[in-house]
Design a protein around this nucleic acid. Structure first.
Length: 558
RNA sequence: GCGCCCGUAGCCUAAUGGAUAGGGCAGCAGCCUCCGGAGCUGCUGGUGCAGGUUCGAAUCCCGCCGGGCGCGCCA
C-alpha cells in the first residue's frame, strides 16, 4: 500500500537524520507526493527544513543524508520497492518506485477488489454529517441537490476511510416557516372553494400549494367553506409537513441519497428540552436578560454580537431549538459533527459554533461546510430562482432532464466553496464535452476489452506474477491505482469530495491513453496480453469503486 | 460601514507553503486494415496591483483594486 511505503520511508529518513545530524533533534519527516512524476513517487523536503537550524545549504544536508538512507534501505524489506533515490535542487530527496513497487499496487487491488480504497484512517470515530435539512415548505431545489450530492458522496468516502459516519436530515417541522405553509395551504383551499381571499404576502406561491390544498380537502371530505373552517391551523400544518416530507423523501431516493437518521425538531426540541437547555446555559452565566428578551453570549466565542434566544413576547428564535438539537447530536456520542449549509447561512456559523462551546464542547468539534449555489443555465441564460415566488428549478426537473448520473456528477464538478454553473444542455450532451461520459466510457471500455478477451481468445487477467508491464503508460496507470486510497483520505481530511472527481478524470484519461498506445490483446503474446488485461481489470475495479462512491452508474456498455 | 468568501490564458478550472503553475472547453493540425473514434497525439496562452514573512508564496500576513454573500427580538 502507498501509505505503508510512505510510513516506512519516514522511519528510514528519521533514522538517517539521527545518524548523520543528531543535532537536528527529531524533526517531523514529511513525505510528499510530487505533483510531477519526474520527481519520483515520494519526495522529502527534510533537508530544506533543516537548512536554517543546521546553518548548512539544503543540498549539502541532502547530500549527507542520501548515503545514510541508501545504507539503511539496503537492509530494509522496502528495498525491492525502491528503484532509485536522488537528490535534486534545491534540496529534495526523491524516491522512485521499482516495477515490483508498482506491481504491489495491482496485488492490493486483486486482493481487496470491491474493498480496495478502504483504510483505517478514521479509526471508527463517530461522525455525523447533517445535510439538505430543507424545511418542508416545498420540493427540493437545485441548491439542495448540490448539497445532497456533496454530503452523500462525502459520507460514502468517510465510511470508506474508516469513520463511523452517518447521514442525518433535520426536519424543521415547527416555527414560522411552517406557520406560513399552513396559512398558504389554507388560503389556496379557500380560493378553490370560491372565496376571494388575498394570498398571504409572505406565503409560498408555488403551484404545488394549490395541489396540496385540493388533496387536503379530498382527504378530509371538505366541500364547503364551513367544512374548511372546522379544520384547525394545526391540521393544515401537519398535513403540509407530512405531504412535503413525502415529496422530499422521494426526491432524495430518486437522487440515490439515503439518509441514516431523520431528526424532527418537534420531537427533539420540545418545550421541556428547550427550557432545560436554557436553564443550563443561564446557570453557567451564558444567558442574560435585556429589554425583556433573553440573550445568549455568543460573543464569548467570537460571534459579532450576542443572540436572542427568547424574544420579549416569549417566543424562541430559530437558534434556540437548534442549540437543543446540537446538544442532542453530541449526546448521541458523535465526536465530530459537520453541517452542510447554503451560503445564505454563513452568518449563522459563529453562533452555532458558540453554542457548541456553551454546551461544553470545543467549537472545533462542530464544522460547517458552506456549499455555494449552483446557477442553472438553459440555452445560455441563467434561470432565476426564488422559493417564495415559486420560481425555481427543482432538483427533480434537473434529474429528469439530464439524468441522475450527470446531475450528481455536475454538482460535484467544482469545489463546494466555489460557485457552480450548471449547464443543462452540456449535461445532456452525449459527447466529448461532457465529462461524465468520458469516465463512464472508460469503464465501459474496460468491460468491453475483458469481454472480448474471454470470448475470442480465452485470455483471463493475470492477477499474480506480473513481471512485464514497464511502458510509461502502464506505469502511470499503476501509480494512479496505488494512489487511490490516498485520494480518499485527502477528501476526508478536507471534507471535499471534489478531489475524487479530478482523480477519476486522470485515471480515465490514463486508460484511454494506454489504450491508444498499446494493444492489449495479442494472439502472438498471450502472456503479455494477460498481464495487460490484469492492468485493465485493476482500472475497472478502481473506476467501479469510485463511481459507486459518487453515486454514478458504472455502465458495462453504453 | 462591519464581517465572510473569491480574483489563475478567450471561457471554465486544479495545485497538503515546494521543483518547469496541471487539466478541460473553444481554435488550428493530425490519428480508424486492427481490442468501442463517447477516444488519442501535437500547437498556442495564465497567478488583479503593491509590500511583508519564508530556504521557498497562486497559497500565509498587511494595504489597495474588482466581484459575490451576510449583517433582524426572520428562518
Amino acid at each position: 500500500m502507498y501509505s505503508d511505503i510512505r510510513r516506512q520511508l519516514q522511519e528510514i529518513i528519521d533514522q538517517a537524520v539521527q545518524t548523520t545530524c543528531p543535532e537536528a533533534g527529531r524533526p517531523s519527516i514529511i513525505i510528499d507526493t510530487p505533483a510531477d512524476k519526474q520527481h519520483g513517487e515520494f519526495s522529502c523536503n527534510i533537508a530544506l527544513q533543516l537548512s536554517r537550524a543546521l546553518k548548512k545549504s539544503p543540498m549539502a544536508i541532502a547530500g549527507q543524508l542520501m548515503p545514510a538512507i541508501s545504507d539503511i534501505l539496503r537492509q530494509h524489506p522496502l528495498k525491492d520497492h525502491i528503484a532509485n533515490i536522488e537528490v535534486k535542487a534545491p534540496g529534495f530527496v526523491n524516491f522512485f518506485l521499482s516495477r515490483a513497487g508498482f506491481y504491489s499496487f495491482l496485488s492490493d487491488v486483486f486482493i481487496q477488489k470491491a474493498d480496495y480504497g478502504k483504510s483505517a484512517y478514521g479509526q471508527g470515530k463517530k461522525f455525523c454529517l447533517e445535510f439538505v435539512s430543507a424545511n418542508p415548505t416545498g420540493p427540493l431545489t437545485v441548491a439542495h441537490g448540490r448539497q445532497a450530492a456533496v454530503g452523500d458522496t462525502l459520507v460514502n468516502i468517510l465510511k470508506t476511510v474508516g469513520f463511523d459516519a452517518k447521514k442525518e436530515y433535520y426536519v424543521n417541522d415547527e416555527g414560522n416557516q411552517i406557520n406560513i405553509l399552513g396559512r398558504s395551504i389554507g388560503a389556496r383551499a379557500r380560493q378553490l372553494l370560491g372565496q376571494d381571499v388575498p394570498f398571504p404576502e409572505d406565503g409560498y406561491q408555488g403551484d404545488y400549494i394549490r395541489a396540496m390544498a385540493q388533496e387536503f380537502m379530498d382527504q378530509n371530505g371538505i366541500k364547503t367553506l364551513a367544512d374548511l373552517e372546522r379544520q384547525s391551523e394545526g391540521a393544515l400544518r401537519q398535513f403540509g409537513v407530512a405531504y412535503l416530507m413525502d415529496v422530499i423523501k422521494k426526491d432524495l431516493v430518486d437522487f440515490d441519497v439515503h439518509f441514516d437518521i431523520w431528526s424532527y425538531q418537534s420531537k427533539i426540541a420540545d418545550y421541556k428540552a428547550i427550557e432545560s437547555v436554557l436553564a443550563d446555559l443561564k446557570g453557567k452565566g451564558f444567558i442574560y436578560e435585556q429589554e425583556g428578551a433573553w440573550w445568549f453570549k455568543s460573543t464569548l466565542w467570537g460571534d459579532d454580537k450576542d443572540r436572542v434566544v427568547r424574544k420579549s413576547n416569549g417566543d424562541y428564535t430559530y437558534l434556540t431549538p437548534d442549540i437543543v438539537y446540537h446538544k442532542n447530536k453530541f449526546d448521541r456520542g458523535f465526536g465530530r459533527i459537520v453541517n452542510i449549509l447554503g451560503p445564505d447561512h454563513h452568518g449563522y456559523v459563529p453562533r452555532i459554533k458558540a453554542a457548541a462551546g456553551a454546551l461544553g464542547k470545543s467549537p472545533d468539534d462542530l464544522d460547517v461546510i458552506i456549499v455555494q449555489l449552483a446557477t442553472i443555465f438553459r440555452d445560455g441564460k441563467e434561470v432565476s430562482m426564488s422559493t417564495r415566488r415559486g420560481e425555481f428549478i427543482s432538483l427533480r426537473e434537473v434529474m429528469e432532464e439530464v439524468g441522475k448520473d450527470a446531475a450528481r456528477f455536475f454538482f460535484l464538478m467544482r469545489q463546494a466553496s466555489s460557485h457552480l454553473e450548471f449547464d443543462l444542455e452540456l449535461a445532456k450532451r452525449q459527447s466529448a464535452e461532457n465529462p461524465v461520459y468520458y469516465i463512464q466510457y472508460a469503464h465501459a471500455r474496460t468491460h468491453s476489452i475483458i469481454r472480448k478477451a474471454r470470448a475470442e481468445s480465452g485470455i483471463e487477467p493475470k492477477t499474480s506474477g506480473i513481471g512485464r508491464l514497464d511502458k510509461p503508460e502502464e506505469i502511470d496507470l499503476m501509480r494512479n491505482i496505488g494512489f487511490y486510497p490516498e485520494v480518499l483520505i485527502a477528501c476526508a481530511k478536507t471534507l471535499e469530495p471534489f478531489a475524487l472527481l479530478c482523480y477519476l478524470q486522470e485515471l480515465a484519461g490514463g486508460l484511454h491513453k494506454f489504450y491508444n498506445f498499446h494493444r492489449v490483446l495479442d494472439e502472438a503474446d498471450k502472456d503479455l496480453s494477460a498481464e495487460r488485461l490484469a492492468l485493465i481489470e485493476a482500472v475497472r475495479i478502481v473506476l467501479n469503486n469510485s463511481l459507486n462512491l459518487l453515486g454514478v452508474c458504472a455502465p458495462e456498455k453504453m
